[in-house]
Write a protein that binds this DNA or RNA. Structure first.
Lengths: 174, 174
DNA sequence: CACCGCATGTAACGTGTTACATGATTCA
DNA sequence: TGAATCATGTAACACGTTACATGCGGTG
C-alpha cells in the first residue's frame, strides 16, 4: 500500500523522502502515523525494483537531498494499480477474529468485550469528527474521514447484531 | 492475526497443522483461502516464541503428525489479545488509497473507477449471500459474513458520496 | 496410471515497522 | 544550553505469502 501512495505522490513530481512523509501525513489528515524510516526503506525498495529513480541534490546549510522521481515502469505500475478495483472483503480483520474466537471459545466474557469495543468505536467516531472539524482539512481528506466513519458505524451495527445473536444462542440452550 | 486464530483454535485442545488449516477454513466459511504452508510457518514461529509446543506422534499408514498445544505463555498472550478492544480504523485500506490518489492526481478516470468498484461490491454482496445460504454454515460464521456485508455496504454508500463529491468539486471550478 | 487426500516442511521474497545513528541549523 | 526542524539512512525483526519438495495410500 505505502508503495503506491508514494508512487502516487511522486506522480505529481519529484520529491525527497522527508517531503513525502509530510505529504502522506497531509493526505491522511494525520491519521497515518508514519515513521520516516519506513518512507526511506520503501523508497529504496522501489528503486531496487526500477520503479523509482533518485538523484542527490546538494544544499547550502542543509543535508543533501535524495530527490526521487517515478520511472516509466513506475508510472505504469501505478496506473495498473489505480485502475484495478479492490477485491478484498477484509475478512481477516482483527475485530472479526476476536469476536469469532470469543464465540468459539467461551473464554473471557464476550458481552463485556462487545461493550468495550462499542465504547472504543464511539471514541473513534468522535476522533474522526474532531479531525473533520479542522480548518485545514482538504476536501479529499474529509472524504476519507467520512469513509472511515462509515466503517466504524458498520462495526457498531455489527456489534449490536453480535450481542443479539449471542443472546439467541444462549437462549436456545446452546 | 493468523497467530491468534491458530492459538485460539489450539485453546480448544491440541491439534496438528493440517487439521488447523481445515478448522480455519471452516471458521471463516471458506472465505479465507489459506495456504497450508503458512500454517506451518506460523506454527514454527509461535513455537520459537514459546507460545506453542509440539510433539511428534507416529501413525500407521500415514505420515507422522506434529501435534501442537498452547503453552501457558501462549494462553496468556491469547487472552491478552482477546480482551483488548481493536483500535484501528483501517484507514490504510487499498480502497481509500486508490480513491484518494484518483482525486489527487486526476490520472485515469475517477468516475469510471468508482463504477467498476461499485460493481465489484455488488458481486461481493452476492458472494456473501451465497455463502450464507449454505446449509453447513455455522451461526458464528454467518455472523462473520453479515459483518463483512456491513462493510461492503459501507463501501457502497461511501462510493456514492465520493461520486457526488467529485461532481461538486468539478462544479465548483475545482 | 493418474490423481486426490493426508501430512509435513523449507526457501525465498515482499512488506510493515521500529529503534537507532548521524549531523547541521534555528529558536527560546 | 537544550530542543526542535531538516534530512538521511541502516539493521533487524515480524508477518504474509507462495512455490516447491517429499512420501504414502486409496480411488477411478
Amino acid at each position: 500500500m505505502l508503495r503506491y501512495v508514494l508512487m502516487g505522490l511522486l506522480a505529481r513530481g519529484p520529491a525527497h523522502g522527508y517531503e513525502l512523509r509530510a505529504a502522506v501525513a497531509d493526505m491522511f489528515g494525520g491519521t497515518w502515523d508514519l515513521n520516516v524510516g519506513q518512507v526511506y526503506t520503501t523508497l529504496t525498495r522501489l528503486e531496487r525494483g526500477g520503479l523509482v529513480e533518485s538523484e542527490r541534490v546538494a544544499q547550502d546549510n542543509f543535508p543533501d537531498r535524495r530527490v526521487c522521481s517515478l520511472t516509466d515502469a513506475g508510472t505504469e505500475a501505478l496506473l495498473d494499480w489505480l485502475v484495478a478495483p479492490v477485491d478484498d472483503m477484509a475478512l481477516k480483520q482483527d475485530l472479526f477474529g476476536k469476536i469469532l474466537l470469543h464465540c468459539l471459545l467461551d473464554a473471557g466474557d464476550p458481552v463485556a468485550f462487545i461493550r468495550r469495543q462499542r465504547q472504543r468505536c464511539l471514541e473513534q467516531l468522535a476522533q474522526l469528527s474532531a479531525l473533520e472539524a479542522h480548518d485545514d482539512t482538504e476536501p479529499v481528506t474529509s472524504l476519507l474521514l467520512e469513509g472511515a466513519g462509515f466503517h466504524v458505524e458498520a462495526d457498531l451495527r455489527w456489534l449490536d447484531r453480535c450481542e443479539a445473536r449471542l443472546g439467541e444462542l444462549k437462549g436456545a440452550g446452546r
